[in-house]
Amino acid sequence: MKKYVGKRIFSVIVTLFVLSLFIFFLTHSTAGDPASNMLGSDATEEQVEQLREELGLNDPLLTQYFNWIADALKGDFGDSYFRKQSVIEAIGECITPTLELALYAEILAIIISIPCGIFAAKKKGAATDLGVSAFALVGLSVPCFIYGLLLILYFGVDLGVLPVSGYKTIEEYGTSEHFSYMVLPIISLALTQAPLLTRITRSSMVEVLSLDYIKTAKAKGLKGTTILTKHAFRNAFNTILTVLGQSIGSLVAGAAVIETLFNIPGMGQLVVNAVLKRDYPLIQGLVLVISLVYIVINFTIDMLYGVIDPRIRVSGKS
C-alpha cells in the first residue's frame, strides 16, 4: 500500500509540473497583448511599454515562468488585469455558486442514475432496461445548454413560473428563493451527468450480477434486495466511483456553460469572461486551480479504493 501511495503521489507531482508548463506557455503564446488591451485604444506607446514593464511582460519567458511558479506555490497567483483584485480573491468570490451548483447537480444525478442503472441491470433485456438504456443514449447526445434552453422555454417563457437568470444566496434571500433560481440550472446539469453514470452503473452491475457468488447468494435464498444492495452494488461501486471522479471534470465544464446561460456569477462565468478579455493571470490561475481540484479528487478516489477494496490494500495494485 505504501509503495502504491508513493507512486501515485509522484505521478501527481509530475502531472502538475507538466500541467503548469502547459498553462504558462499557452497563455503566453497569445496573439493579443494584455497591456494594450487594458489601456484601451487611446493609450500611447510609452504608456503601454511602461505597463508591460510593470507587469513583467518584458522579462524572458523562463524568468516569468519561475516567478509565476514561485508565487503560485505560496498561494499567490497574481492580480487579475481587469477585475481590480487578486486572482485568489476573484476565485474566492465566485467559487460558492459553482460549488453549490455542482454539488446539487451531482446529488440529483446520483439520485436519478444509480437506481435507474440498478433496475435496468436487474431486468436486463426487459422493457425497463431498454427504456433506461434509450434514455441514457439520447441523454449522452444532448449538450447541457440545450437542456437549459428548453427548460427556460418551458418553465420560464411558457409557464412563467421560474426565474431564468441570476443567483440569490441562501443567507440573504432564504432557501426557497435560492432554490427557485437554482432549480433549472441544477436540472440541466444533472441531466447531462446522469446518462453516463446510469450507463456505468448498469454495465458494472450486469457484470457483477453474472458472477458465481451472486448465484450462491440466490441459492441460499437471500432476498433480492439484499443481494442487489449488499452483495452486488458494493462490488460494482468501485467502477462507479471512478467514473464519478472523472465526471467532476465534465461537471465543472458543464457549469461554465450553464452559469453563462443562467447568468450565475460563478467560476464558469469567470473563466469565460477571463478568456474573452484575455486576462492571462486569471486564466492561468483558474485553469491551474480547477485542474488541481480535479487531480486531488481523483487521487483521493484512488486512495479510497484501498479502503473500500481490501484486495488493493493487500496487493498494492490498482
Binding site: 499557452l26 497563455t27 497569445t30 496573439a31 456553460v257 469565460v272 480547477i290
Partner: peptide, 15 residues
C-alpha cells in the same frame, strides 16, 4: 487533467 471545455476555451484565448 484539464476539463475539456476549460482547456478548449483556454486554447481559444491563445488563438
Amino acid at each position: 487533467s484539464i476539463p475539456p471545455v476549460l482547456m478548449a476555451i483556454a486554447l481559444m484565448s491563445a488563438l
